[in-house]
Amino acid sequence: MDLKHTALILIGYQNDYFANDGILHGALENSEQVGLILNNSMSFVKKLLPTPAQVVLTPIIFTPDYSELSEPIGILKIIKENGAFKSGQPGAETIRELRELDDEILTLPGKRGLSCFSNTELHQILQENQITDVIIAGAVTSLCIDSAGREAAELGYRVTILSDCTVARTNFEQDYYLKEIMPMYANVGSSGEIATQLGL
Rank of each mutant, 00 (worst) to 15 (best):
M1F: 05
D2T: 13
K4A: 10
K4L: 00
K4T: 04
H5I: 07
T6H: 01
T6F: 00
A7T: 04
L8T: 09
I9K: 02
I11L: 08
N15F: 05
D16V: 06
D16W: 11
Y17R: 02
Y17V: 09
F18I: 11
F18S: 06
D21E: 15
G22E: 05
H25W: 01
A27L: 12
L28E: 01
G35W: 13
N40F: 06
S43I: 01
V45L: 01
K46D: 13
K47M: 10
L48C: 01
P50K: 07
T51E: 00
V56F: 13
T58S: 14
T58K: 05
I60D: 03
I60K: 03
F62R: 04
T63M: 04
S67V: 03
S67L: 03
E68Y: 08
L69V: 12
L69S: 12
S70R: 15
P72L: 12
I78C: 02
G83F: 11
G83L: 09
G83D: 08
K86P: 06
S87M: 07
S87E: 09
G91I: 08
E93N: 15
T94P: 01
R96N: 01
E97V: 09
E100D: 13
E100I: 07
L101S: 13
D102K: 15
D102T: 15
D103N: 15
E104Q: 15
K111E: 05
K111P: 10
R112P: 04
R112W: 07
L114T: 07
C116Q: 03
S118Y: 14
S118G: 03
N119P: 08
H123R: 12
H123C: 04
Q124N: 14
I125W: 00
N129R: 15
N129L: 07
Q130H: 14
T132I: 08
G138R: 01
V140I: 12
T141C: 07
L143W: 05
I145F: 04
G149Q: 04
L155I: 02
G156M: 06
Y157I: 04
R158S: 05
I161H: 06
L162R: 09
D164A: 07
D164W: 11
T166R: 02
A168E: 11
R169V: 08
R169I: 14
R169P: 02
T170L: 11
F172S: 14
E173Q: 11
Q174A: 09
Y177Q: 06
Y177K: 07
I181F: 07
I181C: 11
P183S: 12
M184Y: 07
V188R: 12
G192D: 14
I194G: 02
A195C: 09
A195W: 08
L198C: 02
